[in-house]
């Protein structure tokens, strides 16, 4: 049974020929059929056997039916010891399927990536482009349709021998949903040359997604003026209500969403976005879970929107959970 995938990889230009990767995705196409469930167990078993036996393949096998594929990229083909470069996983989803942001929202699971490299290689935490909010009227989730690049900054140790190659790997796990959900996973790897001077690669992909990274509200490139008001806590012991007012500095954005980075500490409810002629108002209620008070002094929120040029963008806002904070 052929179970390893990467539907589009055959056509991908990964840059230099020394980049190799291998992808593995598993899961049933139909989440409701009991017959499919029986196959699911078998397919999963086979997947894991294949995963444990497979050595890095030069190219991933065709994609079959799994609705998400993952591809490992670096913004260099030659990395220099001690010089930071970016390494990311580009996820591509079939139409109407989405994977999740770091806070999936009312349901779902955060997309997970574990990068690894030669001993001593340092990786930053993951960079998440501004997400979309998906709502069915009952539940709201946050994530990405179409495609998304999730990346980290990597730095090879100073003593990495120049002239050789290093292998960077990424172990990925995701839940991909439309109405039904499938779980997927991939073990990806790529080889990079090591040299005194870095040689750029895939700059356009990284530049495109860096443009979607949320910015600070105070930064000059922030296209919206934001003001946050903390309102009466009501009867919530560990909670507060917030009003975030936004005014476009230039061309109005659309599809505004408030995406709370709730982590494990916060419960956020009643998010409402009202559109105004020159901006928007966001209302939300936030509460710190009992026992998580020490982690819950500020609630990070990404206010995301699509700008006049059609680019998904975001602004980071921190909501003070304690009065006078």
């Amino acid at each position: 049974m052929n179970t390893t995938h990467g539907r589009k990889e055959r056509h991908n230009n990964l840059g230099p020929n020394n980049m190799r990767f291998f992808a593995l995705t598993c899961g049933p196409r139909t989440a409701y059929s009991t017959a499919a469930m029986r196959y699911w167990v078998e397919i999963t078993t086979v997947c894991w056997i294949v995963a444990s036996l497979a050595v890095w393949a030069a190219e991933a096998a065709p994609a079959g039916e799994h609705p998400a594929t993952a591809r490992l990229l670096a913004d260099v083909s030659t990395a220099a010891p001690g010089r930071p470069f970016r390494v990311g996983v580009l996820f591509t989803m079939a139409p109407s399927w989405h994977i999740y942001w770091k806070n999936p929202g009312d349901s779902g699971m955060p997309t997970m990536i574990r990068f690894a490299g030669p001993a001593g290689t340092e990786f930053s935490s993951l960079h998440w482009p501004a997400p979309w909010a998906f709502s069915d009227g009952e539940m709201t989730t946050y994530g990405y349709e179409g495609s998304v690049l999730l990346w980290a900054t990597a730095t090879l140790p100073q003593n990495t021998p120049v002239g050789g190659t290093v292998e960077i790997s990424a172990e990925c796990q995701w839940l991909v949903c439309r109405r039904e959900c499938l779980s997927g996973g991939a073990k990806l790897a790529l080889s990079l040359r090591v040299g005194d001077v870095p040689v750029p690669a895939d700059a356009d992909v990284f530049a495109r997604w860096a443009g979607s990274l949320p910015v600070a509200a105070a930064s000059p490139e922030c296209p919206v003026e934001l003001s946050v008001t903390r309102q009466a806590a009501g009867d919530r012991q560990r909670g507060a209500s917030f009003r975030i007012a936004g005014r476009w500095k230039g061309r109005a954005g659309r599809d505004v969403a408030a995406c709370p980075d709730s982590g494990e500490a916060f419960k956020v409810e009643g998010i409402r976005v009202e559109r105004l002629a020159d901006g928007f108002i966001i209302l939300l209620n936030a509460e710190v879970f009992k026992g998580k008070e020490q982690d819950g002094s500020e609630l990070p929120v990404v206010v995301s929107f699509t700008d006049g040029a059609g680019v998904r963008r975001g602004v980071n806002v921190a909501l003070p959970m304690r009065p006078g904070h």
Binding site: A31, P104, S107, M109, E264, F289
Partner: peptide
């Protein structure tokens, strides 16, 4: 119960 409420994870309920 010391942690009476946490964030659930998983697929959405298909109501």
């Amino acid at each position: 119960v010391s942690t009476p409420e946490t964030r659930p994870y998983g697929c959405s309920v298909k109501y």
